[in-house]
Design a binder for these strands. Sequence first.
DNA 1: TAGGCCATCTGGTCCT
DNA 2: AGGACCAGATGGCCTA
Length: 405
Amino acid sequence: MVSTSPLCPGRQAAHSRMSITARSCDAAANDVLPYGLASERARLRAAGSMLARLFSDSNLMPEAHKYPAWVEDSESDEEKLREERNSESCDPQDSQAEDSVSVAQDNEEAETGMEEEDEDEEEEEVEEEEENGTRPRKRGPKRRKMTKARMERFKLRRQKANTRERNRMHDLNSALDNLRKVVPCYSKTQKLSKIETLRLAKNYIWALSEILRSGKRPDLVSYVQTLCKGLSQPTTNLVAGCLQLNSRNFLSEQTAEPGRLQPPTSTFAMHPYPYQCARLPSPQCQAGAGTSSHPLRSHSYCGGYEQHLYGNGSPEYPGSELEGSLSPSLCTNGGSYSLKPESPPEHEKNYHYTMHYSAMPSSRGAAHGLLLRPGLHSDSLTAYDSHIHHDRTAVYEELNAFFHN
DNA sequence: TAGGCCATCTGGTCCT
DNA sequence: AGGACCAGATGGCCTA
């Protein structure tokens, strides 16, 4: 039995504490492009530029965040500093703490020695007084006495820095939210964790670059394995669910009916990943029946996998094609359909899996189970989705007409 | 209660 | 000097 956290599948991962930094993003990005093909790199650069534009879109950025109460409350701030001074002065012998509390020491000096100075003298640089005996004088530039005015400036600077840092992290989170929407599996109610989002995005880019490089259609198993490489088990289940993949079924098919799957000439490296998801129905359609010479023009697959992978029927590759395949305008939850497991556990009933589907499903048969309702998930439409929602409505209407006439 | 994830604060470093 | 970026520390929230 696979347990799934209803809020965050990444929480199940036994990863050590990690912070999402630009360095980790760079490290992930460096793994994405294993090939020296200039054309693929150019396309991916274009995709990267598109993502950068997407993330830098001012409409996507959160509104100005309110300052916490203490920012505007100087008295509470002073109390905070006072508490810090009290707590940090408990162990004066700790040299490491000494560095960290230098500001507090300065504050202390300000209180003890400078209160009677007038404001003009406060602007002067004054050598630090000799410390009283026990500890040697610290190296480095001589510290200035922390006057009241200086302390105020310090506090103001610190508050501004905190605000900037807060906004910076909010922007980063906003970009991560946008990234969540363009990776293969998006659920507003069950958000991927930051690290899982980055991993899935990296795998997704890898998978797309493999397709571009080889010009071949990967088999379903390898595709999902590639997407799920390094992800936690709950996230793997989520992605597999989004791709309508029943690992138990495809594993058995792999052994009992290998002919139904792509031969092992897959362009994706097979790696043993312990799929244990057995809560999803069988794939509605089997892979491998296609004869299309081009993966992006395939008309043989059906179901989420194909719609996800080849859904954009545009015959053009570069530029707009890439933007189309990566852009949420074609990869949207606004017109997506939910994939619900058969008899889901109680705690999963509120899950809201959405599968990004693209402009044109591959066949009419594939569309039979597909309800194209522009407002289907309007509750989960975000600001960005709302932004592009209007443009997509016409497409949905056309598709509805196409499939229901 | 432990562990995972997250937001925030903070000081350091680098760059303009 | 000030801003951007980073990483460590901390505490809150949530789940198993």
